[in-house]
Every structure is written in structure tokens, then in C-alpha cells.
Amino acid sequence: MLRAVREIEGGIRLSLNAAGRLPVLRKPPILESFLRQVYFTGVTASTGVVLRASLLGVLIIAITMDVLDADVDLAVKILLLVVFREVGPLAAAVVIILRSGTAMSAEMAMMRISGQTRALRYMNIDLYDYLVVPRVAGVMVATLALTFYIQALAVAGGLLFSPFIIEASFMELASRLFDLFSPVDFYYSVIKALLFGFAISACCCYHGLNPPDLTQNAVPKVVTRAVTQCAMLVLTINAVFAYIVFGILFFGLVKATV
């Protein structure tokens, strides 16, 4: 219990520190580290998701029309709701936790254990500036980009390949999509993707910099803890966000009636 409280406090402190130091991104080595993070987290992850993301849209449209006996309108509406608001950001978050979260927490734990963080301190280089800020900012940008990428692929895949398995033409699906798309879908996924990126990177940095002990055995423990907590954080943010947006904004606060 005490450890959980300490972790929450440490995580909040790290997040506030990182958020307040964003201007240091202008320094050349930090900017370089930020770009490297964007490349490794976003660009290298993008090739692996092409097929899966494309199939996602096909599956959503085909299942909705076949199982729910829905018309084109409902199928496209569900595609928009599911892909833009829920699955897009969540899929990007899962890819980033599995690919970059593990790597980031292990790398930072190794740096801490082998005394490299101490070397940085002796060179008067702030650990938050050099290690945390570029990773947090880089992962946020990469999560946002990957979310858009997955959304675009899923929608494009859905529109292009669905006509082969259901009775609806590409033009029909596309025109309904443009009719139904609203800016709320866009803002919703932007804010969500940025929050996911922030939570994942802050959690991984916190665990990487605070291993349970300073031996090699601590690295797997750090990675396990970071990945588990990242997944929990992402699911919690997703639930809270959905409740705030759908529950309060659209229907008002639910009041109990006696």
C-alpha cells in the first residue's frame, strides 16, 4: 500500500517536472534525443501495423452489417465511433507499450544500474532534461502520429475491402463517412492519444529511474512493473475519458431517483 502511494506520488512529481521543462527541448542534445525517440517509437512501429489496421476496418464493417444486419449508415457510424474514438488510440497505445515502453524502461533501468545516470549528474546534466523530457515529448508525438496512422489505415481498409464481402460500394461507404464525420471525433482522439502517450512515457521513465535495487535482476522487474502499470493507466484513462465525454457532455450527470 505504502509503495503504491509512493509510486503515485513519484509518478505525479515526475509528470509535473517533465511538463514544466518542455522548453529545454530547444537544447541540441535534447532535441536530438527527442527526434530519436519519435523515430524509434513512431516511425519504426508504423510498418508493423499496416495489415492489422487495414483488416480492422474491414472486420468492423463486415461484422456490423452481417451480424447486426445493419445498413451502410450504421456500419459507417460504428466504424467511425469504434475506430476514431476507441480502437485507434487504444491500438496505438498497445503497440507503444509493447514496443517502446519495454525498451524505454529497460534502457533507463540499465543506465541507473550501471551508474550512467550518476555520470550525467556529475556532468551537471539534469536527468529530467536529458532523459525524461525528450522521451515523454517524443512518445506523445509518436502516439499521436501512430493513432492517426492506424485510424487512416483502418478506415481506408474498411472502405476499400468491405465492398468485396458486403453489398455496398466504395463510393457509398465513403460518402456516408464524410457526412457523418465530425470534428469532435478528431479532437477526441487527439487528446486521448496525447494523454496515453504522456501516461505511458511518464510511467516507464519513473520505473526505469527507480528500480527496486541496483542489480541486473532489477531490469526484468522494472519492465514487468512498467508494462503492467502502463496498461492499467491506459485502460483507466480510456474509461474515465469515455465517461466524461459520453456520460457528462452528452447526457448530463446521471442522478439517482428514489
Partner: peptide, 8 residues
């Protein structure tokens, strides 16, 4: 050794 090089 306590102010070593950064591995990456």
C-alpha cells in the same frame, strides 16, 4: 569509472 561514458 563513476563518471563513465554513456552506452547508447
Amino acid at each position: 569509472p563513476i563518471v563513465g561514458l554513456i552506452n547508447n
